[in-house]
Nucleic acid binder design. Structure first.
Lengths: 348, 348
DNA sequence: TTGTATGCGTTATCAT
DNA sequence: ATGATAACGCATACAA
């Protein structure tokens, strides 16, 4: 490691006082072009960089943002959160901030985890993702009075600023697309009531069905958890309904679940798209190789990450937020799985 | 945000000098139990936590470790790297460190990215993952003379400390397993020669085949890139060989590729496991739902993360490394795809 | 055992 | 326009 080059070294080299250098560097002072050039040359020659610890101490700001993510049962991070992390990191750097990762131990006191980071002044604020009902982190953030912005919301009137995907609007659009394709008996594989995201999306289904004055058979709304297996089992159940009640389209809340549904349809000797339409959610790269292609809803995650950081940094600078809560609509991507006219695909 | 509680506040409350508090806190001083109790009470009452910026400035150490990851073409992080990140974060916290994320912009000067972090003293060291041949980061780290430990290696005799998975040993074990299952004509879908990891794993294949004195038909060793599609195409090619040259087992370097291979086998009217054995790599959760189950090699990623951090922190403390280079063997997980006796599975 | 003095590198307030 | 002085909070060599 090279020796520290300090402000004083630069000042000595440029033959000015170090306070002058400090001010000139950040444009708080006008000097003669000649002096300015001497200082720039000195900085360049010595390779000076301000010491971030000293800056943090002086400015009472670490320029670090704490982020802790959640894995699902399979120890996996959703592609959504991966991209979210990436976009945050880039946007933060553009604003002079960095992301600090910290663990979320299952058996450790959550409060002390956050408190330690705040009280040691290690981070200036937090980003929270995967917010659910009664999220234990929310009261903690509130109690610590630390700036924070969430990706996701626990309810409409959350006190914390958040950016979220409008899953309700997304599913509604998917259902309207299916209706436009001529479907009337549309089923949905929802999530348990404890899932905020799932409930939100299910509402989109009700919206669209009601908007088109289509009746909903109680059997068409299934709640469950799991991945491909959930889709397979639930779809098999739907396809076993009497013909006049059997849905011709099945909406799912996740691409992987849609894959299970498609397998169930094929196993019944039916053809996905032509006989039964299917839609997913997330546009997961992992299912891109599935044939037929899965109609899905792509979340604008990149924008979410940028917005979350923008908002948090704004908060830290004391700027009032333009929007306390932002809802971004997902984009419907139509592929073969929801089209009757799609070309037949040889392999499943 | 609550007001700062400093050492002096604690000292005033405990009626001692603040230097005494400082020393007592970190056990550098013996005091009467009575004084000790007063100090503890004060810390507790005021909720004192040492200011990390002040500590960093004083100790010339940020206790931050820089980590930047790489995404694949599909903007995805491999499950391996996800788990790696997680294990690092937990282990780092146990040692009083945190992970700082920084972006790897494709078109930005790589050197300045690292230099900025080092010269501002923002991080004490780096963790590098996804090392390949001629990795541009290696000379940078070398030039900056900053402590760093890698997950992965570009060559055997790398100057930087590293922890890596012994892919060669892993593939060799998989091949020996296939041989034990009675296979003799074993093919492998390798990666391009530019892939260090791929070359390494391919060597394991040669090791095992040579070790069993089995001849290798040149047509059995295919090099290519891609995911499921690569597996499908390459396997179709292998299965089109004359019967006496057609492999009865196909080794792949990735579970997803194995899935493509299995589809090709099924499309030929053959049965995976009984007619042609298949093995993958990584034990990816995403393919857990595939039937028949994919025999694969699970990487001990958690251990890698722990080791990498242990080594880097040791380096920062000036401790000599017990092992400069560590190679961890993957674990063979045998499932139906490589067993002739496996129960027949109804759905693909 | 306890307290004093100094510096880590920066920013900011005041003089000049 | 420039420079002396203080302060941010902590750790430590040294003196008492």
């Amino acid at each position: 490691m090279a020796k520290n080059v300090t402000l004083k070294d630069v000042a000595r080299h440029a033959e000015v006082s170090y306070q002058t250098v400090s001010k000139v560097i950040r444009g708080q002072m006008q000097v003669t072009p000649e002096v300015r050039a001497r200082i720039d040359a000195a900085i360049d020659a010595l390779g000076y960089r301000p010491n971030s610890a000293a800056q943090s101490l002086r400015l009472q700001a670490s320029h670090l943002l704490g982020y802790s993510w959640q894995q699902d049962r399979q120890n996996q991070i959703s592609p959504i959160l991966q991209q979210f992390q990436h976009s945050m990191v880039e946007c933060a750097e553009d604003l002079g901030y960095h992301i600090l990762l910290f663990p979320q131990r299952p058996n450790k006191d959550l409060y002390s985890t956050y408190a330690a980071l705040v009280e040691t002044r290690r981070v200036d604020g937090f980003i929270l993702s995967s917010i659910e009902y009664d999220d234990p982190r929310l009261p903690i953030i509130d109690r610590l009075k630390v700036p924070a912005v969430c990706f996701g919301r626990s309810s409409e009137d959350m006190s914390l600023p958040y950016v979220d995907i409008d899953g309700r609007a997304g599913i509604a659009e998917a259902v309207r697309h299916l209706i436009a394709e001529g479907h009337q008996r549309i089923a949905i594989l929802a999530w348990p009531e404890t899932s905020r995201v799932g409930t939100e999306r299910l509402n989109g289904y009700w919206d669209a069905m009601a908007g088109a004055n289509l009746p909903v058979d109680a059997a068409w709304v299934i709640r469950g958890a799991g991945e491909s297996d959930y889709g397979y089992v639930a779809a098999s159940q739907l396809l076993a309904l009497p013909h006049d009640r059997r849905p011709t389209a099945i909406v799912t809340l996740l691409d992987i679940i849609a894959v299970g549904v498609m397998r169930a349809i094929a196993d019944q000797g039916l053809q996905v798209g032509r006989d039964v339409a299917v839609t997913g959610f997330d546009d997961m790269p992992a299912v891109h190789y599935i044939k037929p292609g899965v109609t899905t809803l792509r979340q604008p995650v990149w924008e979410v990450g940028q917005l979350v950081i923008d908002m948090l940094v704004g908060l830290l600078k004391g700027e009032p937020l333009a929007h306390q809560h932002v809802l971004l609509p997902p984009e419907l991507i139509v592929r073969e799985s929801s089209q009757r006219e799609a070309l037949a695909q040889p392999n499943q």
